[in-house]
Simulated scan of single mutants.
Amino acid sequence: MRVLSFSEKGCIRKNNEDSFLVLSAEGLYAVADGMGGHRAGEVASSKALQELEVWLPRLDGLDDQALENSLAEAFRQANRVVYESSITDPENAGMGTTLTVLLIRNEKVVIAHVGDSRAYLWRNETLTPLTMDHSLVGELMRLGQITHEEAKKHPQRNVLMRAIGAEAVIEVDCRSINLQKNDVFLLCTDGFSNLISEQELTEEFLEPYSWEERLEKLRQLTLERGAPDNFTALCCILE
Results as ranks from 00 to 15, higher is better:
T126P: 08
T98F: 00
S85E: 15
L140G: 01
N106W: 05
T88A: 00
R58Y: 12
L28Q: 07
E149V: 05
T126N: 09
E167V: 09
H38I: 13
H113L: 14
M95F: 08
A72D: 07
S70V: 01
S46P: 08
G226I: 01
P208H: 04
V81D: 02
F20D: 04
H113E: 08
S19A: 10
K47R: 13
V82Q: 03
G61H: 03
I104K: 13
A30C: 06
K108T: 05
L218V: 04
R2H: 09
A30Q: 02
P228N: 11
N15S: 13
P129N: 08
N194I: 02
E171W: 10
R157W: 11
I237V: 03
W55D: 11
N124L: 05
K153Q: 06
G61W: 05
I177Q: 10
V82Y: 13
S197V: 01
L223N: 04
V137Q: 00
M1R: 08
N124T: 05
V31W: 01
E8K: 11
F185K: 00
S86V: 06
R162E: 07
G96D: 04
I87G: 15
T100Q: 03
V3D: 00
I170F: 03
S19I: 02
L127E: 02
V3W: 02
V54G: 14
K108N: 11
E200T: 14
N194T: 03
R80V: 08
E51S: 10
F192H: 00
R175T: 04
Y29F: 08
D183E: 01
I196L: 03
Y120F: 14
N230W: 02
E198A: 14
E200V: 02
L179P: 00
V137I: 12
V184D: 04
R219K: 05
V114L: 01
A74Y: 03
K108M: 06
Y209P: 13
